[in-house]
Amino acid sequence: MAQTWKCSGLRWAADGPVLTWVGGRHSALVRGGRVAFGVAEGGVRTCVGARGHPCPLRAGVSGRSTGARCEECARLDRAHSVAADTRADDPRPYRVYLAWFGPGLVKVGITAYERGAARLLEQGAVCFSWLGHGPLMAARRTEELLRAALGVPDRIPYAHKRAVRAGLPRSRGERAAEIAELHARAVALGGRPESLTPAPFRGVDHAAVFGLAEEGAGGPGAVGEVTGLVAGGAIGGELVAAAGPDLHLATERGVVVLDTRLMTGWELVPTEGEPCAVPVREFRDAAAGVQDGLF
């Protein structure tokens, strides 16, 4: 019987993306290498728990859920997050940033100063710039000010990020233009907390880091995205790009985007040359509301 592995997610290390596994193992991902796995026959996806603790019920969760948590564990996990505004007494300094994911897709956000650019890599930001740093509540007030005054959201769905990657502008200057303009407008705004130390505009570009710059723009265009794993299903292909939690895999049916958050909670087994057999939504049909097909 083949050994099964349980994925605990993808993280970004200094030298690139790494798949992590329950038990402490990890697999560095290299562009040009092969990524292939299957879901055990008869397998059931179970809740991954919250805050490092296993789910007491080992509850089953949907194969389409990117959180892989039952309702109770999801509530506990969010209750301790900065995003939920439940940690106002956090003494750590925070940074405010503007992140660009593609034409027209800019967001404002905050991240702990000590994390550096890790949060931007995790979100799949193609380029970004810091706006400033200071106490948590000053960073949060600045984020809210930009949302209200400039109309910049604090969240962008991953589906929207994926849809624009194949058409990214060719130069770093073009990719940074939108956040450069917004940074200038943000600096000119009144009402920013005095305890937030401003940062000059300095665009940081991740296109090459993600593997989206090899062909001058977004690299090989993806034909679709995996919508969930299924028992007995499999997927494999050459890794051509990785951005945020997404792996762009060149399969026999074209480049398919796999959100690695869909891998958590399943028992996975290594595979070789099996065809892509998981639910995939084709990008060209998504806007028309066409139902998912099974490649």
Rank of each mutant, 00 (worst) to 15 (best):
R69I: 09
V61F: 03
K107V: 13
G104E: 06
L189W: 04
R147E: 08
G9T: 01
L146T: 08
Y158D: 14
V240T: 14
T66D: 11
A287P: 02
R281G: 11
P279K: 00
G203P: 13
K6Q: 15
E267L: 06
L146V: 08
A286P: 00
S65Y: 12
F295D: 05
A287C: 09
E71T: 12
W130D: 10
G23S: 11
P153G: 08
V226C: 06
R170K: 10
L229S: 09
C55I: 01
R115I: 08
F128W: 15
G16L: 06
V22P: 07
V61P: 01
G60H: 14
L212M: 06
H248V: 02
W100H: 02
T197D: 13
R202P: 02
R31L: 13
R51T: 01
R92S: 13
A241Q: 05
R185Y: 09
P54M: 12
P17D: 09
V96H: 06
T46W: 07
G124I: 04
E122R: 07
V126A: 08
E71V: 14
R165E: 05
R284N: 11
L229E: 10
V164W: 01
E144R: 14
V280A: 04
V290E: 12
L247F: 11
P169T: 10
I156V: 12
C276G: 00
G42K: 10
A186C: 13
R75N: 13
G60S: 12
V269G: 01
P245M: 11
L268G: 00
V152Q: 02
C70Y: 05
G102Q: 03
V257R: 04
V269L: 12
D292F: 12
G273V: 03
R175V: 10
C276H: 00
G38F: 01
P135M: 07
V35H: 05
G233S: 15
H248D: 08
G124R: 02
E174D: 13
R175N: 07
A217W: 08
A138I: 00
V35F: 11
V152L: 10
A50I: 07
E215I: 05
L150T: 04
G38M: 01
V152N: 01
E181N: 04
G265R: 03
F128L: 14
D90W: 01
P169Y: 14
G52Q: 07
L120Y: 01
V256K: 04
V44K: 03
R25G: 14
P56G: 12
K6P: 09
E178M: 08
G102M: 03
L76P: 00
A186N: 11
A180L: 13
R64S: 12
L239K: 11
A118N: 11
R115S: 10
P220N: 11
A148T: 15
H183N: 10
V108Q: 03
L145Y: 03
E114T: 02
A277H: 03
S171D: 05
D77C: 10
A184S: 13
P279D: 06
A186S: 15
P275V: 08
R69A: 05
A199N: 07
T46M: 12
